[in-house]
Design a binder for these strands. Structure first.
Length: 505
RNA sequence: GGCGCCGUAGCCAAGUGGUAAGGCAGAGGUCUGCAAAACCUUUAUUCGGCGGUUCAAAUCCGCCCGGCGCCUCCA
């Protein structure tokens, strides 16, 4: 079996700002480092979009036959909310507000984060190192930077001298001169260059931080940019293939990582072959005020009776490199679309036969081990075309909207044999992760948080309605239907009787 | 002040030189006591505005309008 298949994968690299063909450092393998969450609060939907993006990237590489290693950090060290001494430590602030230890805070929000990832069907990274487990590594990293002359000491800590590496800020297309002239240049409190950043922050002499460690530069905590450099190079080696993160990291965090890596590696190379950044989820007006503050969690979506995978599907409808407009209308629209897709796949499964459906479901249950070549083997010409469409879309910088368009088209293609169509659905599922074969449309219906009707009450009402219908008391029957509708329950009358489901709030 | 992004039908959105994917909603139909659900059919002479380049532009260039991100922690 070839190590890779399909068209060359084109990825938009932030360093060159160009589409570049993916050529791995090691043939047949791909290493990804994804900037993970700081666990001082719940992840919001925008954060989660970033992880859906990295998951798609990973699934596409797997689909194309690469052996993928993905590393995602968990930032459980508090970092200051500003570069000035007066800044607050996010972790410590959360701990103080909630009267819990910083370690409790970290554990709680890490667990919540992992639960969100699972709900979204995001494959767990191969490694999820916590920053606090790598303090010694970061200290060693700094020692090397210090020995190579990239650092200097200020009263409040150890700093990286960005003038010691060539072309600082290229990744972010930073205009250093322009920033100097600007009105918003931060207090440099002795920094040699405005862009210099902290590698080790000393605890104030008169107080202790809740999280602090001893180091050659005094007791304190590592600089925020350090952990990603240390852990990415430790787990993936240098150079490694792909580094991902939100677009907001392109200008500061990742520029600093590049500088650190260059200083550390000492060969004029940052050790990262492709930098990929996802755009933001943006909040339009819509009914967003309902949750005011714009802090929307996955739980917020669940409370509306909307399945987590609907959010995944919603994100897949847009390019990861374009801002995505969030709105409830759009999300519910995605829900309706995803539901119809599931209904069609279920119909295909019925036509293809239970044995085939079960076999295919099991074959794609684990994208890490799924045999794409075997799945795509007996496929009629008319079906092959859709596989080519899928590959072409994904190879074009992970164009999932196009992949979804192909999926919709193939599900409506009457010329396809049911087995072929279902096989294609299985292949699409490997990359999309919307549980096409492992879930049904019914599974998408969730009870909204404020739904008042109980299942028993609903059953009783339906029974009463059916009796009224039998007696041709349609006024009563319709009144019951309206009552159920008002309660968020959708009635479905069919030849086999009446069923019901929850509607999104 | 600097750097960068976006603006395509009611909504989300693909498309970046060759004459507008896909989904949702809407409309019509089948079904139904009527509906809903489901299924079938259908829906942008037009891509924020104004100029320009070109045989040809949503796609390239200029200006303008609107929205957003980063420059301080942030996906």
């Amino acid at each position: 079996m070839p190590a890779t298949r399909g068209k060359p994968l084109q990825l938009f690299d932030s360093m060159t700002r160009m589409l570049r063909e993916f050529v791995p450092v090691r043939a047949g393998k791909a290493g990804i480092y994804s900037c993970g969450p700081t666990v001082y609060n719940y992840a919001h939907l925008g954060n989660l979009r970033a992880y859906l993006f990295t998951d798609t990237l990973r699934r596409v590489l797997l689909f194309k036959g690469y052996a993928v290693t993905q590393v995602m950090n968990i930032t459980d060290v508090g970092h200051l909310t500003s570069d000035a001494d007066a800044g607050e430590d996010k972790m410590e602030k959360a701990a103080a507000q909630q009267h819990r230890s910083v370690w409790d805070i970290a554990r709680h929000y890490t667990d919540a984060f992992l639960a969100d990832m699972a709900a979204l069907n995001i494959l767990p990274p191969d490694h999820q190192p916590k920053a606090t487990d790598h303090i010694q590594g970061m200290i060693d990293f700094n020692r090397k930077l210090e020995a190579a002359g990239h650092t200097y000491l200020l009263p409040d800590g150890l700093y990286f001298d960005t003038s010691t590496v060539p072309d600082y800020g290229r990744l972010g297309r930073l205009d250093i001169e322009g920033q100097k002239a600007g009105a918003r240049v931060a207090d440099t409190h002795g920094k040699r260059n405005p862009t210099d950043f902290c590698l080790w922050r000393k605890s104030p002499a008169d107080s202790r931080r809740l999280m602090e460690w001893d180091s050659p530069w005094g007791t304190g905590a590592p600089g925020w940019h350090l952990e990603c450099s240390e852990m990415s190079l430790r787990f993936l080696g240098a150079p490694f293939d792909i580094h991902t993160g939100g677009i907001d990291h392109r200008q500061v965090h990742h520029c600093n990582e590049v500088a650190q890596n260059m200083g550390f590696l000492g060969n004029g190379d940052a050790g990262v072959r492709y930098w990929l950044h996802n755009e933001f989820l943006v909040l339009g007006d819509d009914k967003m005020s309902k949750s005011k503050g714009g802090f929307l969690r996955l739980q917020t979506v669940l409370d509306q009776g909307i399945h987590p995978l609907v959010y995944r599907y919603f994100c897949l409808q847009a390019s990861y490199r374009k801002p995505l407009e969030f709105g409830w209308e759009g999300l519910k629209g995605a829900g309706a679309g995803l539901k119809r897709i599931h209904l069609r796949v279920a119909e295909l499964a019925a036509r293809a036969g239970a044995d085939t459906a079960t076999r295919l479901r099991d074959a794609v249950a684990n994208p890490l081990t799924a045999d794409v070549a075997a799945l795509s083997t007996p496929l009629a010409d008319g079906a092959r075309r859709y596989l080519a469409d899928l590959d072409a879309a994904l190879s074009d910088d992970l164009n999932t909207p196009r992949a979804l368009a192909a999926l919709n088209t193939l599900l409506a293609d009457d010329a396809l044999a049911a087995t072929d169509a279902l096989r294609l659905a299985a292949l699409f599922e490997l990359v999309l992760g919307i549980r096409l074969l492992a879930m049904t449309a019914d599974d998408l219906n969730l009870r909204a948080k404020d739904a008042a009707l109980t299942d028993d009450r609903i059953s009783a009402l339906i029974e009463e309605r059916n009796l009224a219908r039998k007696n041709r008391d349609f006024a009563r029957a319709d009144a019951i239907r309206d009552e159920l509708d008002a309660g968020g329950v959708l009635i479905k009358d069919g030849p086999q009787g009446t069923t019901w489901e929850w509607k999104p709030a």
